[in-house]
Nucleic acid binder design. Structure first.
Length: 418
DNA sequence: AGTCCACAGGAAGGGCAGGCGA
DNA sequence: TCGCCTGCCCTTCCTGTGGACT
């Protein structure tokens, strides 16, 4: 089959999808099922902006995919709509910033610069003193009588990196403004985040608090059904597909994003395989594919030093597995003898060997320790610090990749180093 | 009860790249 | 071009830690 055939087939084939964008994360639906209470609560809190008053700052908690960002965007959009229709003399602006977007708002400078940019000020990515950026920011908001609602998504990422000084500055901002009023909506999925904040920041940022509980399987099913109706052509889904996606995502702390991803990827897989319907097995494959893609993408984008650390852990795990299966073959040896755990020192020495092998400069133990911790955070390995008494404290490291994923990562890293 | 191990992980700061204004 | 600023990656130095050993 030539590439032209592939394209022709794609054009001619009856698509399972009507509008696949409906299943993407960035799609804003007309209604948000099972979030009526949160929408109303947030609406009540933000309503003062309709008459030009400053709403209380709000803090929104909830795990990923519980609709926090969606509800915030929805409510602010509705506010703007209402103002356009009924309160034309009131000026309201809303700004949405996601701190997890790398290089856009993960430092104090970048956050302020992003907000200022949204307000039409041209601020360079870097180069100016932070104080000057603040000044530009103040000027841009205080230039007229207006209310500005700033939604800061993944606010914990920002504070983790830069400390809570920036939140202190932001929550105090209203005392310095003459014309404008600023309201901050902080969104986080880290439930213990606010407890670690400076008490002054804590009290002013969380004047109001909203909690978004996870969706259960039934609610996820409703959400999926509504989206699927718009996303897929009629009769494109086999019985039980939606239920399965909902159930799988419900296991994963009720993450609607995950449910939508599953459905979308299952649909794409079905379409690619030429199936007339999305079947249950497509959902299974989709689940595996999503996990694989996530990990492979993370590993691919890591710097070389991180990759070599992971490569080392992979080699050590392999060597250990080989040893274990060797012991099984000859039971006299006893499995316990062969079961050597992988410790920080093992990784470090093997890593240094590998660096020599690939002519790379080896990093210090301190840094390698951080890289190992990063992989733990990604969920690629799992490590547990254990105290071995007289033999010190160390980390026991195990690879948490499935066999098929291990193979893929292995291939990827081999390509990088050979 | 005290010691000691082998780290974990915090703090401080160096060096470099990228970007700005003068 | 120079001086200045920020972000990032990294090192150095240091303190803290939990449990086996003495």
């Amino acid at each position: 089959m030539t590439l032209q055939d592939v394209f022709n087939n794609f054009i001619e084939a009856k698509s399972l999808f009507q509008n696949r964008d409906v299943l993407s994360i960035s799609f804003t639906p007309e209604s948000i099922p099972h979030r009526e209470k949160q929408i109303n609560d947030l609406g009540k809190i933000l309503a003062p902006s309709l008459v030009g008053a400053r709403p209380s700052n709000v803090f929104i908690y909830g795990r990923t995919g519980t609709g926090k960002s969606l509800v915030s965007l929805y409510v602010t959009a509705e506010l703007l709509k209402t103002i356009n229709e009924k309160q034309k003399d009131v000026k309201l602006r809303t700004i949405y910033i996601n701190c997890k977007m790398k290089k856009s708002a993960d430092t104090e400078y970048r956050l302020i610069a992003s907000i200022a940019k949204e307000l039409g000020k041209d601020v360079p990515f870097t180069g100016l003193p932070t104080e000057q950026v603040y000044k530009m920011f103040f000027e841009s908001i205080d230039s007229e009588k207006q209310t500005i609602i700033v939604i800061i998504d993944e606010i914990d990422t920002l504070v983790e990196k830069t400390g809570d000084g920036i939140l202190y500055n932001l929550t105090r901002i209203n005392q310095e403004l003459k014309n404008a009023k600023v309201c901050i909506i902080g969104i986080t999925n880290n439930l213990s985040f606010i407890d670690n904040l400076d008490p002054r920041v804590k009290s002013s940022l969380s004047e109001e608090e909203l909690v978004f509980p996870p969706y259960n399987a039934v609610q996820l099913k409703d959400i999926l059904r509504e989206r699927a109706e718009k996303a897929f052509s009629p009769e494109s889904l086999d019985n039980g597909v939606i239920e399965k996606c909902a159930a799988l995502a419900a296991q994963e702390h009720g993450d609607a994003r995950r449910a939508l991803d599953l459905l979308r990827v299952a649909g794409e897989l079905a379409e690619r395989s030429g199936s007339a319907k999305v079947m249950l097995q497509h959902v299974d494959t989709a689940e595996e594919k999503i996990d694989t893609d996530k990990f492979v993408e993370i590993i691919k984008t890591q710097p070389k030093q991180s990759q070599i650390v992971l490569y080392t852990i992979l080699r050590l795990t392999e060597a250990q597995d080989a040893k274990l299966s060797g012991n099984k073959a000859q039971p006299s040896g006893g499995a316990a003898d062969g079961k050597k755990e992988i410790l920080t020192i093992d990784v470090l020495t093997a890593y240094q060997d590998n660096c020599r092998k690939f002519s790379l400069k080896a990093l210090t133990q301190r840094r390698v320790s951080d890289l190992i911790a990063e992989f733990d955070l990604f969920g690629i390995i799992s490590s547990k610090t254990v105290s071995r008494g007289r033999y010190g404290r160390t980390r026991v490291i195990t690879l948490s990749l499935s066999e098929s994923l291990k193979e893929k990562v292995n291939k990827l890293l081999n390509e990088v180093f050979y």
